[in-house]
Design a protein around this nucleic acid. Sequence first.
DNA 1: GTACTGATACTCT
DNA 2: GAGTATCAGTACT
Length: 195
Amino acid sequence: MEILKRDFYERNTKIVARELLGKILVHRLPEGNLTGKIVETEAYFGNGDPASHASRGKTPRNSVMFGPPGYAYVYFNYGMHYLFNVVTDKDGVPGATLIRSLEPLEGVNFMFQRRGVKELKFLTNGPAKLTQAFEINISHNGLDLTGEEIFICNDETKVSDIVSAPRIGISTGKDEILRFYIKDSQFVSKKAVDV
DNA sequence: GTACTGATACTCT
DNA sequence: GAGTATCAGTACT
């Protein structure tokens, strides 16, 4: 396994979102490592993407999206949930990939403890769930993902079928196909209706 | 099995 | 002061 370098992230958001599928997210904690395979992502741009926080220009909240790639953009919303994004594209170009769901690998017991659910498939099958399970919060906003604490690794296993679908949970900009997930995974938050 | 609703606090207008 | 890239629980079919 190899940690993804900055140049992986420094590409078009849509490409990065698609290629992040099957990669391994790692969070190092004193209690042990938490790891999970990325099975669902969504791409968010800046200009021309009404659903993106960056569409209305740069603000203190979303400034990370405008910065260099390979950093964490953690955003708090709905009064109780954190969402974990990976900043993509070049420095100065707004873009981020929302990690929507993971397949838990290491540290499952810790995640059960954090989440208080009984079934494995409910641990991380949603963007706010995985941040809770992985102990990610606003203090990780702007963290370097090529560093030591939180990072993403390449995995040898091949990704099977990748499905593209409209994004979820937003009120505008639904028409574009910017969500990607692994077809066979049990951990995808919501699958598209049959085409 | 699906559908609806309330909880909650932070950010931008 | 309104809106939000959500979740979990309840009430139905």
